[in-house]
């Protein structure tokens, strides 16, 4: 998970980002046990580093951790990145009552699902480009 806290004000440091003058965007990857699940996580990291939003813990939503759930509820826009049509990230968020603004499914972008967990940087870059086109 990206070591960054976003404040709703706009000030920022390397670790704590304040966004008083911008929308809070939460990025939730499924991070599942497949190539596309792991790619979803890596793409979320890249998006967070590019400043698209704040990467958050999808599993923390499922675990009902109050800080993570409330952080999601405090978002103005939620991006769920799922590896496959099981849509675990989207379903987890919606099960917690958090509406998903944008759901991206990597297999629907032409990335074939398998259980090879050795992900190449080129695969992440390819997926990132496709995801970015959807945003």
């Amino acid at each position: 998970m990206t070591e960054e806290i976003k404040c709703s004000c706009g000030d920022a440091t390397d670790e704590i980002k304040c966004s008083c003058e911008s929308d809070n965007v939460g990025i939730f990857p499924c991070a599942g046990a497949s190539n596309v699940g792991q790619i979803s996580n890596m793409v979320a990291v890249k998006l967070a580093k590019k400043g698209v939003g704040t990467m958050m813990c999808t599993v923390g939503i499922g675990g009902h951790r109050s800080g993570i759930v409330k952080s999601a509820e405090g978002c103005d826009y939620i991006i769920a990145i799922d590896g496959c049509p099981l849509n675990c990230a989207k379903e987890t968020l919606e099960h917690a009552g958090i509406p998903v603004s944008k759901n991206i499914v990597l297999t629907e972008l032409g990335i074939k699902k398998n259980h090879d967990l050795d992900i190449l940087p080129s695969q992440v870059e390819e997926a990132l480009a496709k995801v970015a086109d959807c945003l």
Binding site: K6, C7, G26, M56, S66, K70, S71, C75
Partner: peptide, 18 residues
């Protein structure tokens, strides 16, 4: 687990964030 601030914690439970 708070990723966006401000947040309020009452007796250990996060009540609001962002």
């Amino acid at each position: 687990g708070v990723m966006i601030t401000p947040a309020v914690v009452v007796d250990g439970e996060v009540k609001i964030a962002g």
